[in-house]
Write a protein that binds this DNA or RNA. Structure first.
Lengths: 132, 132, 132, 132
DNA sequence: GTGGTCTAGACCACG
DNA sequence: GTGGTCTAGACCACG
């Protein structure tokens, strides 16, 4: 059972929230290689989100190689999903470099960032190498 | 002499670029307590940006307590500017917690983040206590 | 049905009149938690006020936590709207302290202020506790 | 010795601050019937305020009958100053009626306003009838 | 000169 | 449809 939430008041577009949510389901192992994704109309109904918005998220996830559509039978998780997600996350990290330079320049010390990371990484399990 | 650049084609709104740029000028010590900012019209002309856009940035910086307007006379850096900037940057860091949890969950290991931080913090001078 | 009036010739800026008017609608119970506000274009048309001016008011109300924008869908009254409005009004009262000290110093006696308050508070209903 | 302060960062125009300040000097008895006001150039120098701004305040105070100019010899306090000041303050109070209605409608209870007035009126001496 | 407000109109992303 | 950003240009009060 997939659990996704969308916050329509967020400045993050809903389709991006959907992408992030699906990626989370996959990295958490709730959705595995070959598993079917909920149909667009199903997810649209359960989340109260416009079908076009679901569609947009699915198309983008397909573009990234995380999911794939089998004509007539919906979307399913690809074998390379985990790897592709990791790749986009690494790109995201790289894009934060300018932001962190600003933080550092404003006086935020590395120790504070380390404390922040301690919070983030507590309880993060060592990810065994899964080739999925 | 203030050096600001704006990229009109960036997906980051111009007024946000201006806010970040002014904050950088202040944290870098190019603009100090009591210093006047360039007038709206002046900056508008030198950057080729509409005065309304400059004003939007100045108003937001005022709201944050970084600058203050003396109507009829212009905008000035407040005594608490450095502190207010640090405060907003700390808030920005806190808001990145979810993002980093996603990165961690996707398999980005702490060592990789530390390498990232090494790059960010090389050449960041120890900020001496400035009381002004 | 929302009833707002703006006086274009007032020395009070239109966007401030809009803020006060919306707050009045909410405190009067005409707009409740979760209710959508009129869209910017709609209100612009019905009041004969430029959309930018409407937006300026909406943005300030958002900043105060009274309303919230759901991009692509519109603005909505927040659950905490009543509380936030009360908070800003209390701040407004506090800011009148200097003004009243001047009145008192000039010889306006407390009895006269009490008579003034009698007029203000006649017909003000006891506000029952509304949890929403 | 007259003590006036102006805050160039206030949204209250400087010339209004000057008017209020002069009225305060008079109601406090620092300036009495017939006393000369500081010359415009003198006050301009001591406050660091544009002479035109001082002039504007003096003209408005003259209009209200609080001060009067003797051609060639500057401005002085009129015999009716106290009375005129009281009159304008009463008008100011009346103009606050709408504001207070909004406060009341938002849920600010009369008891809270009374507490506010307690603070304002503590230490306000009973003003004996001075015809000046 | 300065900032503050407002209009008119355009273009964009998002749903 | 919705809001968000931006430009161009005007007018005003204030100093």
């Amino acid at each position: 059972m997939i659990i996704l939430f969308v916050d329509k008041f967020s400045r993050v577009p809903i389709y991006e929230q959907l992408i992030t949510g699906m990626e989370r389901e996959i990295t958490a192992g709730m959705l595995k290689n070959g598993d079917p994704l909920p149909s667009i109309r199903e997810l649209s109904a359960s989340l109260g989100v416009n079908p076009n918005t679901i569609q947009k998220a699915y198309v983008e996830l397909s573009r990234r190689g995380v999911i794939s559509s089998a004509p007539g039978s919906g979307y399913y998780v690809t074998p390379t999903a985990q790897k592709e997600i990791l790749r986009t996350k690494q790109k995201q990290l790289a894009e934060l470099e300018m932001t962190f330079r600003e933080l550092a320049a404003a006086g935020i010390r590395r120790e504070q960032v380390e404390a922040f990371l301690d919070r983030v990484y507590e309880n993060v399990p060592e990810k065994e190498e899964e080739k999925s």
